[in-house]
Design a binder for these strands. Sequence first.
DNA 1: GGCAAGGGTTGACGTGGATCAAACCGATAC
DNA 2: GTATCGGTTTGATCCACGTCAACCCTTGCC
Lengths: 247, 247
Amino acid sequence: MQMKATAITPTGLKAVCSQCNLRELCLPFGLTGEEIDRLDELVAGRRKVRRQHHLYSAGAPFEAIYAIRAGSFKTDVLLEDGREQVTGFQMTGEILGLDGISSETHSCNATALEDSEVCVIPFGQLEELSRQVESLQHQFHKVMSREIVRDHGVMMLLGSMRAEERLAAFLLNLSKRFMARGYSPAEFHLRMTRDEIGSYLGLKLETVSRAFSKFQDEGLVAVHQKHIRIIDLEGLRRLLTHCAKQT
Amino acid sequence: MQMKATAITPTGLKAVCSQCNLRELCLPFGLTGEEIDRLDELVAGRRKVRRQHHLYSAGAPFEAIYAIRAGSFKTDVLLEDGREQVTGFQMTGEILGLDGISSETHSCNATALEDSEVCVIPFGQLEELSRQVESLQHQFHKVMSREIVRDHGVMMLLGSMRAEERLAAFLLNLSKRFMARGYSPAEFHLRMTRDEIGSYLGLKLETVSRAFSKFQDEGLVAVHQKHIRIIDLEGLRRLLTHCAKQT
DNA sequence: GGCAAGGGTTGACGTGGATCAAACCGATAC
DNA sequence: GTATCGGTTTGATCCACGTCAACCCTTGCC
């Protein structure tokens, strides 16, 4: 029988960045082994989040950021009248919670799309360590900046693209991220509903569904519910670059 | 005749945060006098940017971030086919260039909307100093996080609001920012064209123009070209919270 | 097995904002 | 003064996407 010497978290396991196969995608990227060990020390442990449950909610006090160890999440903001805008879908190795730094309060909700697990990184300690470890500081700044660049991409999508371009961009983006994680870039399972995709892309679920069907008819992808197989990657890319007005 | 002892910049002036009336809105916020002096040391000087000129362009190597000392800017991203998406309008005290950190290359264009001036903050040195000065580190993180939260707001706007709501939100946001700078929140001059507003809001300039006219007809604002006077602030706010479907 | 519930698809129709086009306005240039 | 030009306004028409509604498929429960 196994002893649980460091049963300090709900999962009974201490996070260990150095052993984590996501470290190249995550905060430890670019750190030396010794530096990663120091990062390990401050990771307060892991936390499991069940499907449909919140990791944090808008208005909650900000204390830590989170690295996704398993599973996936969506973040969204709500308007007073109930309208929801999904601001992003996050997968393993990606960091959640950066929105909370500015006001010391979370400004959006983070919800697990499937049973998931995160590493909890207390923010005050992260700042402290990144004052000592230059490469950690730099990597953290890069992570934040990447989020800003990503957001600009979404604005481009929402502000300047038509429905099919948006969906194509969405699929290509997912494909790329699955590939970076060692999964097939051509075949994957969507964790979110049509409604959530629609909210993210600024479309109604019916429009998303129709666009999927159209892609299928055109032989670009094979869609079976949430299962996606990309057949013609180049075709999708072409859709993106000059669809709007095929001048 | 006056000597220019520190003529190290095009403007012949060393930036001095401690003397700057924008410091409460800018990077020095929350620093002690002594800490601000250290920040002063690293500000490489000021740079003037003429109306319509670029402060930096997409693809340019990233070396510094910029604090706007006078004037205003827009940032935009371009698609291969020429479509433009304005990702933000920045005014005095706000920080430009954060997009460049992630890839060490700027990912958008920053263009002066009027003759403007920025303080140049070499990024490597900023990171170095913020390893020593905790309050600077924290304030910098807040600035980056604020940008992320702002971007989420724009996504909300682009993804879930109708034309008039978007314009109302835009005007209210400008109003708030002018107020924070000691200007009238009710009466101001737009520095951007209808086309640029449209690009930012995901609308065509004609739609922006029509929405302005509608607001005018309804007695919400007085519009004279680029001069705006907000007459009914509450009315604009009301538009925002439950216009979509007045259920 | 039947049946309920939640998500997805598809069709018919309506509409908000895009598009196209003309005119207007205020600057600056001559 | 007139011409020019960039930006803006306004009107007429169009179409991409939203809305509403029916139906289907899958899963889980009794």
